[in-house]
């Protein structure tokens, strides 16, 4: 799994390339936590899922943990552009009742 980050309009955009599972999910959580610690003025996190080819409950757990940690700090959290298989897992988990999902990174950034 490869993670790249970029700041846009006081949002941290995290692009994930690969699979989110028990092994890789903690890396995502660490990267997000480190970025928000280093840049406390960030107001939102956008996780771009377009190149995520696999997700399971460990990956979902990491996304939920990021969402909860940021919500506690009053920051927003948006998921962008999940592929069909990933979207189906997100839907089944019920996570979409809590977290906003949009169709593209650009749309996510515009919303913030």
């Amino acid at each position: 799994m490869k993670i790249t980050t970029e700041q846009k309009r006081r949002a941290l955009v995290v692009r994930i390339d690969g699979e989110l599972d028990l092994h890789t999910s903690p890396i995502l959580q660490e990267r997000v936590a480190a970025a928000f610690t280093e840049y406390p003025n960030l107001r939102a996190l956008v996780v771009v899922l377009s190149n995520v080819t696999f997700i399971d409950s460990s990956g979902l757990g990491a996304l939920l943990a990021c969402y909860r940690d940021l919500s506690a700090l009053g920051k927003r959290f948006v998921l962008a552009n999940p592929q069909a298989a990933v979207r189906r897992v997100l839907q089944m988990s019920g996570i979409l009742n809590q977290i906003d999902v949009v169709d593209s990174e650009a749309q996510a950034v515009l919303r913030l």
Binding site: D56, L60, G61, M92, S93, I95
Partner: peptide, 17 residues
């Protein structure tokens, strides 16, 4: 097992589904 915050439970929900 369907609590979304419970990893093991959610995993079993996926297997069942």
């Amino acid at each position: 097992t369907s609590r979304p915050d419970e990893r093991m439970g959610l995993g079993l929900v996926f297997i069942r589904e």
